[in-house]
Nucleic acid binder design. Structure first.
Lengths: 216, 216
DNA sequence: AAATCTCCTTAACGGCGTTAAGTGATACGG
DNA sequence: CCGTATCACTTAACGCCGTTAAGGAGATTT
């Protein structure tokens, strides 16, 4: 009674391969045929494991989240400020870890309920810190959605770390904007040092939560 | 000397038609052939006016912005808080005005420099109110990117006002989340009353700007 | 009248997501 | 030990996509 020969393909491996390929070819190049080729399989084989391409993308987003959570260690005694900052910068780093990461991620939905573990933890920590549940939800959601918007824009300008999309050379942009001096200067502020800008925005948000919800 | 026969197609009309069609068929259904059909023209004709589909989408995003600005009247004596709120809720309303509005908008880039007029105005107002330029940029950008993230998520759950994507029935979601009581309750908070949630987030942000930059 | 320019048409290319049908290996019921 | 069912794939094909090539009709210029 030999066990059934292992299938060529399993879900986990397909998702891992797709994520690796994403970095090489970007979202536009991430076709089912290309993924299949990488897995040494014909494209329709993927339909045995995923009901369609979106379901594969959903699994990819879920796996991105899983890896992010696995890579985050939050100190047990962390303040809510530290927790919110860690969650947000962690999400940004995770999304920046893949070409078009933000687009893939925010165009998809988690499968299962695994993701709720960390969410529950975060909400719990906030409630313990003195927030009402609606306040906790609002605070965390605001940071979360800001981060998604931020990285989407960031990757629109800088698809992969280092390379820059056309029309976003900072000095050339400043020239085009000559009639709008403040906006021209703003360009440099906006399109350089994304990391610093991101952290400053988080500080703004945290200051607002402290002020408005009275939890310091 | 009769004037040259008017061309069947002009850029402005093509963009308007594409935006109207977007509402009917969504971004996935917005193909060049469908747009061309609506314009009573063959698909390749569009390549006379646009270098490729992305350029048409860029023009669509620019037109969305143009209409948004045209529809906004800011009181001359408005405070920076009112201005930031008006800009953000105005952007949200504008994006919600089109099916997949946020995706189209944030996947595209403005053509020309027309958009800088309003940006310059806003920066000017903030500087006059006592902000440094980097502070003004940070404040406005944070609100802007949060809004993009928010509406992207909102339209992911509710593609068109009223209709809801699968898996986002609020009570059904709560059932799936039974093991995570806070997260389950959070769902109701998150996926209902988007408008109220949005405004509360803005208030958080404004409170943070006041607190951190000391401009009340 | 010839040449040119403008703006569109027809035809076609390669590639896409997806479906239908078939096929060989493995497990299981008699 | 054999037939049948099930699993996990392959091959073939469909309709559609963005885009390019080539051409042509009409207005304008020479």
């Amino acid at each position: 009674m030999a066990t059934r020969r292992a299938p060529k393909l399993d879900k986990k491996q397909a998702v891992d391969t797709a994520l690796r390929l994403l970095d090489e070819v970007g979202l536009d190049g991430l076709t089912l045929r290309a993924i299949a080729r990488e897995l040494d399989v014909q494209a329709p084989a993927l339909y045995w494991h995923f009901k369609n391409k979106q379901e594969l993308l959903d699994e990819m987003a879920t796996e991105m989240y899983r890896r992010m959570v696995a890579g985050q260690r939050i100190a047990p005694g962390a303040t809510w400020q530290e927790r919110l900052t860690a969650a947000s910068t962690g999400l940004r780093t995770a999304l920046l870890g893949y070409r078009d990461g933000a687009k893939v991620y925010s165009g998809s939905r988690f499968t299962g309920t695994e993701h709720a573990v960390r969410l529950e933890e975060n909400l719990q920590a906030f409630v313990t810190a003195g927030f009402t549940l609606p306040q906790a939800v609002r605070a965390l959601t605001t940071a979360y959605l800001f981060t998604l918007g931020f990285v989407t824009e960031e990757q629109g300008v800088e698809p992969a770390p280092g390379e820059r999309r056309d029309g976003f050379d900072v000095t050339e942009r400043a020239a085009r904007m000559a009639d709008f001096p403040l906006a021209a200067t703003a360009g440099a502020e906006l399109f350089q040092d994304f990391g610093q800008g991101f952290e400053e925005s988080l500080r703004l948000l945290i200051a607002g939560i402290e002020a408005r919800y009275g939890v310091a």
